[in-house]
């Protein structure tokens, strides 16, 4: 099992919501992958912190109070509706202006900035001459694996 898949399933694994074969595969992966084990530790920590939160007792008028609050918010919303529309219009105008300026800049020079990963891939490609020559897939695998550290 690969790290990205394990990470996606870790929370469900902790909550014991997975079928036995997935649990077994993740357990095996965790036996050697320190990075995913650390992620599992973080999930455990979050859950243990959550244990400290007190359980809230809901009072008898809780539901009606909520509906009352919602009605109040709705009335306020109507009062500020026009103001909100104006603010939104202004915001969109600023965004359009920003993108227009950005496009002009792009025409005068390339502003695309590659990430550090692009340069690490160059290194993996170059240094792999003796092993992974003509195997670009390996550089992709390496940069995916290092992607957690280097964006």
């Amino acid at each position: 099992m690969r790290c990205d898949e394990v990470r996606r399933l870790l929370s469900a694994y902790y909550d014991k919501e997975l079928p036995p074969e997935k649990i077994e595969a993740i357990r095996e992966h965790l036996s050697y992958c320190t990075s995913c084990s650390k992620n599992l530790d973080s999930i455990k920590k979050i859950h243990s912190l959550m244990d400290y939160f007190p359980t809230l007792e809901v009072g008898p008028y809780f539901e009606s109070q909520i509906f009352q609050k919602l009605e109040e918010e709705k009335r306020k919303g109507k009062r500020f509706n026009l103001g909100l529309k104006l603010a939104l219009g202004f915001g969109i105008g600023i965004l359009v202006l920003f993108f227009a300026i950005n496009n002009i800049w792009n025409l005068s020079g390339d502003t695309s900035n590659p990430s550090l990963n692009t340069y690490v891939k160059e290194y993996v490609d170059f240094t792999g001459t003796h092993i992974s020559k003509n195997n670009p897939g390996l550089a992709i695998t390496v940069s995916n694996a290092l992607g957690d550290y280097i964006k």
């Binding site: 050697y32 992958c33 320190t34 990075s35 092993i131 992974s132 195997n135 897939g137 390996l138 695998t141 390496v142 694996a145 290092l146």
Partner: peptide, 10 residues
């Protein structure tokens, strides 16, 4: 073809 990264094999 493989590489060992952070203790595990890719």
């Amino acid at each position: 073809t493989g590489i060992y990264l952070d203790g595990h094999r890719e």
